[in-house]
Structures are given as C-alpha cells and as structure tokens.
C-alpha cells in the first residue's frame, strides 16, 4: 500500500460494524512524527472506534493500517499488544489510574510491564511527573488527588515509555478550562519535544486549536479538512 512519504501511521478504507451499526464506513487517516491531529465530529460518529482501530485495540473488519511500514492488521494479538506497550501511549477521559497504586507507581507501570527495574522505572516516572508539574503527588493514591491532577498523572504515564504515538480520547473532557488548558499545553509540548505524534479526539474547538490540523468524522467517514479548505 502507498502511504505519503514520512507518514508514521496511516489507515485507508477502514470499516468496522457492531451488529448492524456501521461505526466506521471507509475512514482514512494519516499522521507524521511530531504532528498533532485532532479528530472531531458529532457523538456516535466513530471517533473512538477509529482511535481504537489505529491503536490496535480493536481490529477493523476490513481496510489497512500501517505503522512505521508494518501492516497492523496482519500482526497477531501478542505482537499488537507488544506494539501498544512500547510504541504507543494512551490518555482517556477518566478512570485510567490503578487505585491501589501510588501515583509514581501508576506512572512507572508501563515501564514495569516492559521489564524495566523498579528503581529505574520510578526515576523515569518522576522525571515525567516533574514535566507535568505533579511531582508532589508521587506518594498519593488516585483517590486522594483531584481530577485535573489525575489527568496530568495519566499524561505522565502515557509519555513515560517515550511512545512514538500518543492516543488521547477526550483527555480534557472531565476538566475545567484552566486544567484543560494545562493538560493540553503540557501534553503537546512534551509530545513535540519528543517528536511523538498525537491523535487527539475532542469535540472542543479550543482543545483542537492545540493541533496542527483536524479531520472530521461523520457517519464513520472521515474528512481531511486540510485538503478541503
């Protein structure tokens, strides 16, 4: 399959149905290293499904997804989950931190899962918590911190493995304006300085304004607004 030069992650003609619901109906996507792409569109249009397919969480019924030249749909489950652990980072709207672990243990978790020793994993975790300005929360558990703080801890966790793609599904959805801005600023700055790509699902235009360009998903089809306008 042909992908534009320099593309890190690309999908063509993605289709995914849940029963009779066509969640994706020929969607396209592409992103370059260091690029932030906003995915917009009405509720139920297929944004999260697109993100899940791109991240190898949900297999599409048909279509092609290439990541760094590899066809994602032809990998087996073990290969796909290895890819997710080492190359991808995730931020969701809520409920992503493990309540039994402290914040620093939460942030270090993706590294621990790839076999990094505790001390080293927590040292890297602390670095990212400092970047996200939540280093004072290291010893607290998720139940003892605010929603905005928790979201910044989650962003630190998404960045801790130095992923090449960060998937963020409504990362500011549960936050007030000030915390939303802070999360977006820190997320995009950290991603740009690490040359990571960000797939940012959001319905808020102010949040999308942190992106380099946007695509719009409607009825499972995507529109690349850069090519249209």
């Amino acid at each position: 399959m042909m992908t534009p030069a320099g593309t890190l992650l690309a999908a063509t003609d993605l289709r995914k149905a849940f029963g009779t619901t066509k969640a994706l109906d020929g969607a396209e996507f592409s992103i370059h290293p260091g690029e932030v792409v906003a995915v917009m569109g009405p509720s139920g249009s297929g944004k999260s499904t697109l993100l899940h397919c791109l991240a190898g969480i949900v297999p599409p019924d048909s279509g092609s997804i290439t990541y760094a030249g590899r066809e994602l749909t032809s990998l087996n489950d073990a290969e796909r989950s290895a890819l997710r652990r080492t190359e991808f980072g995730f931020v969701f709207q809520f409920g992503q931190l493990v309540p039994e672990l402290t914040c620093v243990e939460n942030v270090a978790l993706p590294l621990r899962l790839t076999g990094v020793k505790r001390k080293e994993a927590e040292r890297t975790a602390l670095h990212w918590m400092e970047q996200l300005q939540v280093e004072e929360l290291v010893a607290k558990r998720p139940g003892e911190i605010s929603g905005g703080q928790g979201q910044r801890v989650a962003v630190a966790r998404a960045l801790v493995t130095a992923p090449r793609v960060i998937f963020a599904d409504e990362p500011t959805g549960a936050l007030d304006s000030l915390n939303g801005e802070l999360v977006m600023q820190l997320l995009t700055e950290a991603a740009r300085s690490a040359n990571a790509a960000v797939v940012l699902v959001t319905h808020e235009t102010r949040v999308a304004a942190y992106s380099d360009r946007e695509i719009v998903v409607r009825d499972g089809k995507s529109r690349d607004m850069e090519r249209i306008v």
Binding site: M40, P42, Q185, T205, R206, A208, A209, Y210, S211, D212, E214, V216, R218, R223, M225, I228, V229
Partner: peptide
C-alpha cells in the same frame, strides 16, 4: 448544513491555532 459547519470550523480553527500559539 454539517459540511458548512465543518468548513466554518476549519476557518475558525485556523485563527484559533494562531491565538493558541500566541498565548503560549
């Protein structure tokens, strides 16, 4: 109407990106 909305949003976003960068 939704396509009109998307196009208008793209136009708004163009300026909103400039404002967001300037804010930074």
């Amino acid at each position: 109407a939704d396509e009109l909305l998307d196009t208008q949003r793209a136009e708004h976003l163009r300026l909103m990106r400039i404002l967001t960068q300037r804010k930074r």
